[in-house]
Write a protein that binds this DNA or RNA. Structure first.
Lengths: 342, 342
DNA sequence: TTGTAAGCGTTATCAT
DNA sequence: ATGATAACGCTTACAA
């Protein structure tokens, strides 16, 4: 049995309250007493019991990372690992803990929700990559659980952190335009997720800004998976583009395979730009031009924002915080800009 | 304020105890009463307060996943994501939660330890990939915290789950031997980690089993990183091997680059076998022959073992459980076995 | 400055 | 079968 406050108190010959004050660095304790108490604490090896403390303070110092993992592919690329890394790092800094919840099905999600949300174990939650029709965020909102979404979320009450998908996509497409392309296709991501929608918007923005027509035949829908990239590229070929912006690197790999199949080469016959900058992108043949996102910072930021919210009253009618991090174009060989380079 | 037991009791016109019995599915409640209580529970939207419950049961249903992440590269490959996936999945099944702790430095580790271990928030812990000299496991042992190590651990009191690194390595090397190679080099992993040691053992075992001499010049030490693979391959070339077993796919990529640098081609001039089967392995040129490990199952198993331990008294003098999962050889082009294939 | 005592929301023991 | 009541280990008025 680990020592309790009571025992430390006895050891230092003071009351529980005094020990509590010392442990919590509160004022109004005579330095001499304080010293004596610290001695007793060390001697006994006392560690405050977090659960007991939580019961009275109504705070656990734990935040949940909720990941509705409907898309399995999302875990194959390094998005979540990096997000988790950033988030845990930030948690460490704030002396919070991170509770990880993945659910592969709606029923598992319900299950989880019942078990960990609204039962007092979490001070708040971060929701990563929820589809627009996922009931998770509405539920959290309804139960008044503090949350931050990773990825733009349409409901105005929901604070979020996101990367600039629109800007990134636009950058990618404008790069292709700059290289002289006039028929530029797009293989979109999942259009039921905001990042999928936003990247498509960026594509349209770029075309519009350069007074280029929007041809629906140049738009093929994918779901981020390699195989969907392959299918979409085959579809796109009918519209004879000279370049394509592919909304994820995984899909770009699929697209590349599709091109190989029909004997087209990159970037000569078709220029390609991806999105994500996964490690594989640099190792491909040809290396993939793509958009880099600051995912680790995104995870850390989500935690920072959430914790800052926990500090102030939840019902502040101030608008929800929205933070967007900028992305970066990484130029490699697949777009044809560096054809001379190795 | 969410409703408490007391309020539900009032609503159902029974005592707290009865409601508690109903919520916990205990016997000795008249069916009629039970029904009435359930009604009150639903009507009030009552959810048991996990923290209060934990205070008295002394169990949180939370287990910690502790990852001393000294090697940053470990997070770039999909080892941890898959491990986490398996672990969370198992947690879901057992109605446990997973608390994730990564620490990038010893001091962060200490910090974390003070904050989350031995303060009652964790029922047990899973330690992933601790270096042999990491103080984490000894500390846990000292504090009598139930733990399972992911990866073999020398101390006999520590239960672990692991993949068969020795067997996998042996399989890899024997495959090369079978293909006719007689001078086979090895690029090892970190030799301060058991998986690094074990893969080296497997290499030696294979040579011995085939009565082949052990040449120290054919052993180059790496640290799993791509760059170390490159360096190690350059070093190995002095000993003129015709094949090499590389203890991680990342290093195999580095090794491949090194070979390209000096104008050697794979598998013609040098056969290569990796370890891990990361997604990149299949996409390389040539595709990498490698050893597949069941990482997701490993994570799930760690949770299963830990939770089974939590059920029975901790001081059982029974030997610690040790489970080793077998690995699998994935044959692709880099070893030369499939030179005819595309 | 320090101590006393009343909770926090459960479970568990013991009567009834 | 059900209800009082005492823990669990802590924080926090309020008193002294």
């Amino acid at each position: 049995m680990p020592p309790t406050l009571e025992e430390v108190a006895k050891l230092a010959d003071v009351s529980r309250s005094t020990v509590s004050r010392v442990i919590n660095d509160q004022p109004n304790v005579r330095p001499e007493t304080r010293a004596r108490v610290w001695q007793a604490i060390h001697k006994s090896g006392y560690r405050p019991h977090a659960v007991a403390r939580s019961l009275v303070t109504n705070r656990t110092q734990i935040i949940g990372m909720l990941i509705p993992e409907t898309v399995t592919t999302l875990f194959a690329d390094p998005f979540f690992p990096l997000l988790l890394r950033g988030a845990t790092e930030a948690c460490n800094n704030h002396h919070y803990q991170l509770m990880l919840s993945l659910f592969t099905s709606r029923s598992a999600e319900q299950d989880m929700y019942q078990r960990v949300l609204g039962n007092g174990y979490l001070d708040g939650a971060i929701v990563a990559s929820a589809a627009a029709d996922d009931p998770l965020i509405p539920s959290l909102l309804h139960d008044r659980i503090q949350l931050v979404s990773v990825g733009r979320y349409a409901d105005d009450r929901v604070p979020y952190v996101d990367v600039d998908n629109v800007g990134g996509a636009r950058m990618a497409v404008e790069h292709l335009i700059r290289l002289g392309h006039r028929r530029i296709g797009i293989i979109t991501g999942r259009l039921d997720m905001t990042h999928g929608q936003d990247r498509l918007s960026g594509y349209k923005d770029a075309l519009q800004a350069h007074h280029m027509p929007l041809d629906e035949d140049l738009i093929a829908e994918g779901d981020y998976s390699e195989s969907s990239g392959m299918t979409a590229m085959h579809q796109l070929l009918d519209a004879a583009p000279t370049a394509a912006f592919v909304c994820s690197d995984s899909m770009a790999i699929g697209a590349l395979k599709a091109l190989h199949e029909v004997g087209l080469s990159v970037p000569q016959d078709m220029a390609l730009v991806g999105f994500d900058n996964v490690p594989l992108a640099a190792a491909m043949q040809p290396p993939l031009t793509t958009i880099r996102q600051p995912i680790e910072r995104l995870g850390a930021l989500a935690v920072d924002v959430l914790i800052s919210m926990l500090g102030s009253p939840p019902d502040a009618s101030a608008p929800a915080q929205k933070i967007v991090l900028s992305t970066e174009l990484v130029i490699r060989q697949s777009c044809g800009a560096l054809q001379g380079s190795p």
